[in-house]
């Protein structure tokens, strides 16, 4: 549904988004995680054809954002960081305006507006001026605006920022409900939010892609897993693997192709402290232990880096 390749946005002074690539499959709900200033809004603005990328391509709902912006715009719903509301308009009137510029046919338009107002729980304020609504209501009117034309792809920029805890819960529930009908990409700088709503996560920091993974993997990694690099001389890959698998606490072993030697990346439970165990196993099997160390770019470290950047900003 979304395919991003080498997407880059350069402003006059610096690079806001730097060669980002990722994909989102149909029906998925993906969290776009990164501290403030990471480039989340900029990326979303390129995906929604608000502005063109400096470099790279993005395909949304089957159409290229540069070649076919009209087709992309027809198929996306977008909730910018500040909901795009006209404070002087009434809720129902505003949704009517949006439904018209989204080319909703006049037959069934009113029914659709009513349905969306019910769904986003704003029906009770339909005749109120938007400027007089609370922040939570405004956010839900913003969501109603994004889904009014039943788009294939929903792009939500920090949909819960600035809300109180109760409103945050309501908004998250609503987004989860919407997940069945749309492919959703939502940005946030809050990790638990991703855990609660999303299936996959794309992490960016300082405009660069840091990781993309399933939320399940991300959380195991963050909850005390460590990544270890291992290099063995004298043993063949299969037998080393077989020996490693017998060690309790090792979660995943991946082979890194290297000329002549056998290198592995190991995901392990941090609590178990498996490194001495690995060393004993390799030596005990008569092989040479050439290298054994923790890899700094574990997801935990990534997230530590992310949060420290956030505090600095």
């Amino acid at each position: 549904m979304i395919k991003v390749e080498g997407l880059t946005k350069r402003y006059a002074r610096h690079v806001a988004v730097d060669h980002i690539s990722f994909e989102v499959a149909k029906g998925q709900i993906v969290g776009f995680l990164g501290p403030n200033g990471a480039g989340k809004t900029t990326t979303m603005r390129m995906l929604t054809c608000f502005m063109p990328p400096t470099e790279g391509t993005a395909e949304v709902a089957g159409y290229d954002v540069i070649q076919n912006p009209m087709e992309v715009k027809r198929r996306i719903g977008y909730l910018p960081e500040t909901p795009p509301l006209y404070p002087d308009m009434e809720v129902a009137e505003y949704l009517d305006f949006v439904s018209r510029i989204k080319n909703l046919p006049s037959a069934g338009r009113q029914a659709r507006i009513n349905q969306v107002m019910e769904r986003c729980a704003v029906a009770d304020v339909r005749n109120k001026e938007i400027g007089k609504l609370s922040k939570g209501y405004k956010q839900r009117v913003g969501l109603a605006q994004a889904i009014i034309h039943n788009p294939d792809v929903l792009i939500l920029d920090e949909p819960t920022s600035g809300l109180d805890p109760h409103q945050i819960m309501e908004t998250r529930d609503l987004i989860r409900e919407l997940a069945g009908d749309h492919t959703i990409i939502l940005s946030t700088h809050i990790l638990p939010e991703v855990e609660q709503i999303c299936e996959r996560v794309v992490i960016i920091a300082k405009g660069k892609l840091v990781a993309t993974d399933t939320v399940a993997n991300l959380t195991t990694n963050l909850r005390g897993a460590e990544t270890i690099a291992l290099e063995v001389i004298g043993g063949d890959e299969a037998s080393v693997r077989e020996r490693l698998d017998r060690i309790a606490g090792i979660l995943k072993v991946t082979t890194v192709p290297t000329d002549g030697r056998v290198r592995f990346t190991i995901d392990a439970d941090k609590e178990k402290n498996v490194r001495p165990e690995i060393a004993r196993a390799i030596i005990g099997s008569g092989w040479e232990l050439h290298e054994l160390h923790g890899v700094s770019m574990s997801l935990e470290n990534i997230f530590l880096e992310l949060t420290s950047n956030k505090e600095a900003a």
Binding site: R45, K73, R74, P84, L85, Y86, I101
Partner: peptide, 13 residues
């Protein structure tokens, strides 16, 4: 200023 321009530009107009 209010950001409603984002709605207009990202709509099929």
């Amino acid at each position: 200023r209010t950001g409603t321009i984002e709605l207009l530009i990202t709509s099929p107009l």
